[in-house]
Amino acid sequence: MKTKQLIKDILRHVVLVLLVSFWLIPIVWLIATSFSAYPGRNTSNFFPEQLTLNNYIALFGSDTVANFKAWFMNTFKIACVCCVVSTLFTIMVAYATSFSKFKARKPMMNIAVILNLFPGVLSMISVYFILKALNLTNTHFGLTLVYCASSGLGFLIAKGFFDTVPRSLCEAAKLDGASQARTFFTIIMPLSKPIIVYTIISSFLTPWTDFVFAKMILNSGISDMWTVSIGLYNMLERSLINSYFSIFCAGGVIVSIPISILFVIMQKFYVDGITGGAVKG
């Protein structure tokens, strides 16, 4: 009996190791290639024959194709603004729809659900023309506007969390003479740390991971203006890939480091926020 259990356990972990290694192959390839001395795609060997740090150095050099420093700063700038505005918008809408029982609440929430069904790619075309009419294409301000303006629509997760906050707390605060605004800032906000951290990180990540909007709005071809995602995508153009593939990998590794850290922090809050809400309610 015991040996049978032991064999089962070993088998279980062998399967796990196989699964994990399957899942890690691309990541290992990414990191390995980023150190490769050969600039293009190495089509004969998985691991590079010669190792070098030059790809990382090239990212911060003066090459306009690999203008990584500018891209990183651009994205960082946009991400910071986006993070503040989107978080405020999302939390504000979530609080209003969860705590204030005003007349237009239900119709408004329905409209929000319907709007969410429209593919973003569709409205993007006319968003582009609106920005063009305002002379905001090829500006970071325009791109930031696109990321932030309709962020209020993503309120559902935060609302689900707010719904689980006991109403008696608000009533007590009201009896003590606190205004709604004060209740919001001094009582509800501290209680909702998980969902607020989640919202902050996810809105910070949007500009780092978005590809479509950036490509559409920053289309002038001046690499100083780009964000990380379009910059890296551009390195894989047919004429460039053979001299930039390893540098692309190095860029991918560098972007992934801060994003992974934030992501790992966020996923804890995500799971807490969502399932806490789902079950308590």
Partner: peptide, 14 residues
């Protein structure tokens, strides 16, 4: 989780 922490545009292009 490491595999999804890397941005999609990097992994997919890779």
């Amino acid at each position: 989780v490491v595999t999804i922490a890397v941005p999609q545009f990097v992994t997919l292009l890779l």
